[in-house]
Design a protein around this nucleic acid. Structure first.
Lengths: 128, 128
DNA sequence: CGATTCATGAGAACGATTCTCACGCTTGGT
DNA sequence: ACCAAGCGTGAGAATCGTTCTCATGAATCG
């Protein structure tokens, strides 16, 4: 076996599902505490990392360097357009960018190309 | 006044110019120490931040979340293709991606679009 | 039911970065 | 050049997100 089902993992998964936007491990920990499903902070971190490794959640860093997690609609590879202020997120499909990234990498003889492509902006609601 | 010229700032700028690849504040601090131009770590951090704010150096985060700095050839906006292992860097021009990012942002009614687009790969030399 | 072994949690440890604050040096004006 | 004014500096403390430690708890398999 490699992954056991525990009360904690179920709780983190559920808390994650209730969120619409990207959240930090600490925020999710707080959500869990508020719900009464107390889970240790270290466990929240570990669980999120496990989910991310299994590609069950998406992960990105905000400008402050904090890691944020979110369970996205689509499982396939995609990018995000995130509101700087409320974190409202739009999942983006970028076949053009993917191709561009691959081409640029090949052109310079780099392999195993990986790309970090995220868009940040201010959404209509946060503009007043 | 807002920016004074000090021995420390000159030293950091010079150390930065001697580097071909992206370096962390701590690495640059070490470079300075090795050269004999001792500068406090806090000052290195502050100075790099100042340079970055003035867009005199480019800044990005590696997978570990560390911030890396580099004085690039071109001053205009561009992206980077960086070798994961040796950090060899290629400056990339991405008019297509820029346009794509702007269009996607507008399509979802987000303003002040900012994008994080960096490519990571393994360069020819690091492949053996 | 038990044994095995992964998972958990509290707190310590870490590592990068920022802050504090007294002292020093650059600068602009004279 | 000389000085006053105030930004810049540095050593170490403080932050803060994240990871590690390790004894204890609980899924899972037979």
């Amino acid at each position: 076996m490699t992954t056991r089902m525990t009360r904690q993992r179920a709780a983190v998964a559920e808390a994650l599902d209730q969120q619409d936007e990207f959240r930090s491990a600490q925020q999710l920990h707080e959500v869990l505490r508020a719900r009464g499903d107390s889970v240790g902070l270290a466990t929240v971190y570990r669980t999120l990392q496990t989910f991310a490794d299994a590609q069950e959640v998406d992960q990105l860093r905000n400008a402050d360097g904090e890691v944020l997690y979110r369970r996205c609609e689509r499982v396939e590879h995609h990018h995000h357009l995130v509101c700087r202020s409320c974190r409202r997120t739009v999942e983006i499909d970028g076949p053009t960018v993917e191709a561009w990234a691959a081409k640029v990498g090949a052109a310079h003889d780099f392999t195993d190309i990986d790309h970090t492509i995220e868009l940040w902006g201010t959404c209509a609601d946060c503009r007043g």
